Computed example of a mutant assay.
Amino acid sequence: MIERPYDGCGKCLLGVRRLSRMKPATSSPERQREDVLTAAASVGGHIIGWADDWELSGAMDAVTRPKLGPWLRDERGPYGGLVAAAVDGIGRNAVDCLNTGYKMRDEGKLLVTYGHEGPWDLNDTTDENRFTMEAWGAQMELRAIQRRNRSATVKTRASRTPQGETLVRFPLRPGGDGRSASQAPTARSRASASILASSRRIVDSAGQDRFGTSGSTAVPSRSSRAGGASATHSLTASRDYAPARTAQAVSARSVTRGCRTPADPAGPGPARGVPAESEDHPWTLPDAV
């Protein structure tokens, strides 16, 4: 069994995994696990635990990492060595990576990575040079990532565009400027004309519903019977857009304060059950909601 508790065999290895950014679609944790298990089996070792540092930059020293650090500081119990998927899993700083490697060498513990035949022997010049080169390569990759991130941040701030979003501008006509439709004067004028025409049609249809198509019969609209607001509540709009006989009817049934008397469906005049305006009981406007 490749994963079992510590038994003092000398090959009780701690699995080390690290990832800078965890994403839902990433498969790096599973790949790293497979590489670690393969590397441990290649040297006849077994895994006693995992030091998984997710959402953690490789620039952090291994000794100060939340999961790996306590093991290196001998706060989590005995272990026989470290096994990682690659050298950059130990760290992306060359000095910190070499310090961890020399710590394993000085304490007589194993240091194993996937792709390297057997444990690292830092007493051997060839292995030491190769380990140093891989640690240096990990640091160069870290510096390149940091440089790209800084450049992207500066470019985003200069363009004042939120990261991950792109503004697309379409010309209004072939050969036109690149302004959006809301910025073009001709587009604004057309939009205003369209809104005005729609308003006139609404007022005309509301006036026909209230007074009839011929303007000779006073038929209340649904909105006026329910007490709701509509275009027919505006005396100015009714006079401007209704026929002449309709405008006269509105003036005749209007009260002095601008609120017309509810009409009875049977004919003009006050509605049944609604007292007419008098000096003792004048009509008042409803309170504002």
Rank of each mutant, 00 (worst) to 15 (best):
1 M>K: 07
1 M>F: 04
1 M>H: 09
8 G>S: 05
9 C>T: 15
12 C>N: 14
15 G>W: 00
16 V>M: 03
18 R>T: 02
20 S>A: 15
23 K>V: 09
25 A>W: 09
30 E>N: 12
31 R>W: 04
33 R>P: 06
34 E>T: 13
37 L>G: 10
41 A>G: 15
44 G>K: 12
44 G>R: 12
45 G>R: 11
47 I>F: 09
47 I>H: 10
48 I>W: 08
49 G>E: 04
53 D>S: 07
65 R>C: 02
66 P>E: 01
67 K>H: 07
68 L>Q: 13
68 L>F: 05
74 D>Q: 15
80 G>T: 08
81 G>F: 00
81 G>I: 00
82 L>K: 11
85 A>D: 03
86 A>V: 03
86 A>Q: 12
88 D>A: 07
94 A>I: 05
96 D>W: 08
100 T>G: 11
101 G>R: 14
103 K>L: 06
104 M>N: 14
107 E>T: 15
108 G>K: 08
109 K>C: 00
113 T>S: 13
113 T>R: 05
116 H>S: 06
118 G>Y: 06
122 L>A: 10
126 T>P: 02
127 D>I: 07
128 E>Y: 13
131 F>I: 12
133 M>R: 12
135 A>Y: 07
136 W>E: 12
139 Q>F: 04
143 R>K: 10
145 I>Q: 13
145 I>A: 09
147 R>N: 05
147 R>G: 05
153 T>P: 00
154 V>E: 12
154 V>A: 14
157 R>Q: 10
164 G>I: 01
165 E>C: 09
171 P>A: 08
171 P>E: 01
171 P>H: 10
171 P>T: 13
174 P>G: 08
179 R>C: 02
183 Q>C: 08
184 A>Q: 14
190 R>A: 13
191 A>F: 06
193 A>W: 04
194 S>V: 08
195 I>K: 14
196 L>P: 02
201 R>L: 03
204 D>G: 11
205 S>Q: 15
209 D>P: 04
211 F>R: 12
211 F>H: 15
219 V>D: 01
220 P>E: 01
229 A>T: 04
229 A>Y: 02
229 A>V: 02
230 S>E: 01
230 S>W: 00
230 S>G: 13
234 S>A: 03
237 A>G: 06
238 S>Y: 00
238 S>K: 05
239 R>C: 01
242 A>W: 03
243 P>D: 00
244 A>D: 10
246 T>L: 03
246 T>D: 03
247 A>Q: 12
247 A>D: 03
250 V>L: 02
252 A>C: 04
255 V>R: 11
256 T>V: 09
257 R>C: 00
258 G>K: 08
261 T>W: 01
264 D>G: 08
264 D>H: 14
265 P>Y: 00
268 P>I: 09
269 G>K: 09
273 G>F: 01
277 E>T: 11
278 S>A: 08
280 D>V: 08
286 P>Q: 05
286 P>V: 00
289 V>Y: 03
